[in-house]
Design a protein around this nucleic acid. Structure first.
Lengths: 160, 160
DNA sequence: AGAAACCCTGTAGCAACTAAAGAGTCAAGA
DNA sequence: TCTTGACTCTTTAGTTGCTACAGGGTTTCT
């Protein structure tokens, strides 16, 4: 099947499929004389695997690890368990952080019961207060299962 | 004070301060003869406001709205309340999604009680199952208060 | 004077896509 | 056969909020 068919079969964007091929998650496939990609069932299954992992908010690096085991059926899957445990830990941590953030935001919201002029808005005044930056250090602490700080961790290494 | 001092005073990276200036969040400031930026207390306060908002995971666009009200003390702050309500809604939604994700992941984790060869790993096999992609549509659904889909929403508009 | 710390601008990169430009291919219908 | 519209291709750029680096200038202190 052609790329559009594969996209439909797996609920994926055509562009995303090409992206996964560039990223090495999907092996390159044969082409027609007109240079169109031709996929078989194996590719469809692999893509479904990848999409399933993405739906669980795993990073592409995590997925690469899982694919490695998928491709090596005799390998011991202990690392798969560990990876999942770690990922679950990330999610739990993120939930805790978001809960904390929710409480802060609600507290802040309560400072302005009814609209008035901005100068007397309890929210704006609280935001302007020095030393009111919350418990954690600042931006990026409440994103996904993989916060931006985690994403950024590899930047230095990558440049090396 | 110079940029390094401002950075220390507000717990911000120097580069981030320059970034905020480029992004229009911080007004440009006067310079020394040697072209060093010179900041006063007003800038320090504004930056603290911004950082406080960031610590609450507000986007820079949201912060721009709040700054507009901060700069217009006679304006009615109803929109501030609405913005905060919406932001709180985003956080609540994200918490719900993460909890759902957590349940899914734990269910998946339970499929492999002890490490064995990958071919018989309940986790890998479940991930490979067709039609197992979870309730939501795929990637990007469980990130921060502002999911990746939200971030991406403005791409089309920006290109115009 | 020299060295170290600081500052500047411009550019690139991170993750995981997504969009657009410009061009080629294919299939169906006139 | 020709036309047209859908599909495909590659390449490049962009999203968010930073962060890092290159290369060079300025300031401070010894």
């Amino acid at each position: 099947m052609k790329i559009g068919e594969l996209a439909k079969a797996t609920g994926t964007q055509v562009e995303t499929i090409r992206y996964y091929e560039r990223e090495g998650l999907l092996p390159e496939t044969s082409r027609t004389d007109g240079n169109y990609r031709i996929y078989g069932e194996a590719h469809a299954q692999r893509l479904s695997f990848i999409r399933h992992c993405r739906s669980l908010d795993m990073t592409l690096d995590e997925i690469r690890v899982l694919l490695r085991f998928k491709d090596a059926p005799t390998e011991n899957c202990g690392e798969v368990n560990a990876l999942l445990d770690e990922h679950i830990g990330h999610v739990a941590a993120r939930i805790r952080e978001l809960r904390s953030l929710e409480r802060q935001l609600k507290g802040l919201r309560d400072l302005c019961q009814e609209a008035q002029d901005a100068a007397h808005c309890g929210i704006l005044n609280e935001l302007a207060r020095q030393g009111s930056e919350g418990g954690s250090s600042a931006a990026g602490h409440v994103h996904g299962a993989h916060g931006r700080s985690v994403e950024r961790k590899t930047m230095k290494d990558k440049r090396k």
